[in-house]
Computed example of a mutant assay.
Amino acid sequence: MKFTITKQKNIFIASFLFLLIISTLSACKKKKIEPKLPAVTMEGKNTFGCFFGSDIWIPELTLSNSLMVDYSDRGMLIIECKRRDRTNVKGSDMMTIKIKDIFQPGVYEISEVEVSSGSEHYFLDDSGKISITLIDNNRHIVSGTFDFQLKERSSSKIIHVSAGRFDVVYINY
């Protein structure tokens, strides 16, 4: 009788441990990390982000030259940002924003925007605004926010680009 009780006790403990391990392992699921826009800063943190329609556009850090910014002493600012193509894992989407005559903080008209996203190509539909909050020529930092509207070349589909922000160390050319 003693042997049977000990055997039943061992089976019960083994079953309990097995169920405990299975329930613990099934609770360990990887959480998908949703992208989010970077904070609005003015410290040269090399950040960029915006809403591209309802999608978030941030640089894909695994791509070479995913965020490039050029600023000339003639006041031309060019921002290029690459992200992973949402339809083709081997490709990348590119957004290029150009602004002329920027010499100090203020609100400016965006001169040109080009976006290639998969097989779609967009251009500036209406005037867009960019607010330059910092130009630091000693530390080569430019920061600001932007909003504009794009039109797809072949279909005339409209995309709103909103809540844009950047805080980057630029290359002076």
Rank of each mutant, 00 (worst) to 15 (best):
V142A: 04
S26F: 10
A27S: 14
F12M: 11
S64V: 09
T145I: 10
K100G: 05
E109L: 11
P38R: 06
F16S: 15
S15K: 06
N137M: 10
D147H: 07
T87Y: 10
M42I: 11
I79F: 02
T6K: 11
R84P: 04
I102W: 05
L20H: 02
L20E: 02
G128N: 02
P105S: 08
D136R: 03
S156P: 01
S143L: 00
T87N: 11
E112R: 12
E80C: 03
T47A: 00
E120G: 03
L19R: 06
I13Q: 10
S143C: 06
L77I: 10
R165M: 11
S131T: 14
K36C: 08
D136H: 07
K45S: 15
L63K: 02
H140D: 01
I79K: 00
N46T: 01
G91C: 04
V113M: 07
E114D: 10
I78A: 08
P105T: 09
H160Y: 12
C28G: 09
E109Q: 14
K98G: 02
F16V: 14
R83F: 00
S72R: 04
S131V: 12
A163Q: 15
W57A: 05
Y170P: 00
R74T: 11
L124E: 01
S127Q: 11
G44D: 06
A163D: 15
M42S: 09
S92R: 09
L37W: 03
M76H: 09
L25S: 07
L25R: 08
N172Q: 15
V107C: 08
D147C: 08
K32E: 15
L77Y: 03
Y108S: 04
D125F: 12
K31D: 11
S72N: 10
I13H: 09
L25M: 12
R74C: 04
I132P: 02
A27F: 15
S111D: 11
N137L: 09
R83K: 14
I110T: 00
K32R: 14
F18E: 05
I130H: 02
M95Q: 02
I141W: 03
R83Y: 00
D70A: 09
F48L: 00
I158L: 11
I5L: 09
F146V: 01
S26C: 11
S156G: 09
E152I: 06
E80D: 04
N137F: 07
T24E: 07
A27M: 14
G128R: 06
K90N: 15
V161S: 03
S111Y: 08
I141Y: 01
S162V: 00
F146L: 02
R84Q: 13
D101E: 15
I135W: 04
I78E: 06
G44Q: 03
L124T: 01
K29H: 10
P105N: 00
K129I: 10
Y71H: 01
P35N: 08
L19P: 05
S66V: 03
D167T: 05
S162G: 10
S162E: 08
K32I: 15
H121G: 04
M68W: 02
G144M: 00
G53L: 07
G118I: 00
E112S: 15
L67V: 06
F103L: 05
K151G: 06
V169L: 06
I56W: 01
I56H: 00
F51K: 13
L61I: 14
D126K: 09
T96V: 12
E114N: 11
I130P: 02
G49R: 05
